[in-house]
Amino acid sequence: MIVITAPTGNIGHQVLNNVLAGDQPVRVIVRDPAKLSTDIRERVEVIPGSHADPQVLARAFDGADALFWLVPVNRAAASVDDAYVGFTRPAAEAMRSHGITRVVDVSALGRHTEHAGRAGYVTGSLAMDDLIASTGVAFRALAAATFMDNVLRQVRVIKEQGALFDTLPPDLTLPAVATRDIAAVAARLLLDTTWTGQEEVPLLGPEDLSGNDMAAIISEVLETPVRYQQIPYQALKDQLTTAGASEAMAQGVVAMMTATANGLNAGITRTPQHAIDTPTTFRQWCEDILKPAVRAA
């Protein structure tokens, strides 16, 4: 039995669809079962509730052996540690008591750099990984680069202002990965019952790109000029708090972006395998995902 958390989210729903192509029984934990399609509800066992609830976890983990763990970031949390480690602690206890043997989670790059301990959300993600690893389960932490899909948050800005905004220097090249590739790797691991041990799996996408590079590709795909604009960290923090983020969580994003600008992603050496595992280029992602979204906006 495979348990999948956050099955209606951007990554979780793709993991679920991929896992359902296999032949193993699947159980999902979901706050609102109505968000699952009728077809999905007929093919999985649904456990309603939050995957931070010990009683929900007890029901979901009973008789299960594999788990896909994804923390839904709570922008209103009192601290980054609460959002990641606090949310995950009941699950770690349930893993021990219910015999979960294999866990795959979505985490972040940065463990192998000097910035790991002061990188906001990334620091929280890595501490979450450590908590899961401490249970003794076989574990694969999917250390993902920046999601290409984050660009979708700026669809209307791209369409109406011809701009892409971020805090990073315009010429700083960084890895970026499509969530569909993350989901494919996660599903492959969940369906494979043979692996053991604990490892980090870096997911870098096939290329490193700067903000200027991304804006140029977006311009070509959309056939309209789009420029990259660097913004101050304070502007980002103000946007987050205005949208309802707590002071601690907004500062966590700023810390993550500051660490990223200073070399947070530099601890992994790119190899040909990274392009094999996560093959979607930013241009292809723009053609498949961004272009339709901009047209519909």
Rank of each mutant, 00 (worst) to 15 (best):
165 F>A: 09
59 R>Q: 15
173 T>P: 11
100 I>V: 14
201 V>A: 04
7 P>Y: 00
260 T>L: 14
165 F>S: 04
255 A>N: 15
114 E>Y: 12
52 A>R: 00
45 E>I: 09
176 A>W: 15
56 V>W: 00
98 H>K: 08
154 Q>H: 11
261 A>V: 02
104 V>Y: 12
127 A>Q: 15
274 H>Q: 05
31 R>L: 01
229 Q>P: 08
36 L>R: 04
86 G>S: 04
118 R>P: 13
233 Y>A: 13
289 I>T: 13
146 T>I: 11
120 G>V: 08
275 A>C: 13
149 D>W: 06
195 W>F: 14
220 E>K: 14
149 D>A: 14
103 V>A: 03
64 A>I: 00
158 I>L: 10
129 D>M: 03
174 L>N: 05
249 M>A: 12
130 D>Q: 15
22 G>T: 05
169 P>V: 01
20 L>N: 05
157 V>R: 14
47 I>V: 15
29 I>L: 00
175 P>Q: 01
276 I>Y: 11
173 T>S: 11
252 G>N: 06
43 R>P: 04
109 L>H: 12
274 H>I: 02
183 A>R: 08
273 Q>P: 02
160 E>V: 02
64 A>W: 00
37 S>P: 05
113 T>N: 12
227 R>M: 09
248 A>G: 13
223 E>R: 14
36 L>T: 02
288 D>C: 09
150 N>R: 05
51 H>Q: 07
19 V>L: 02
259 A>P: 04
82 D>N: 05
149 D>T: 09
118 R>F: 06
74 N>K: 12
258 T>D: 10
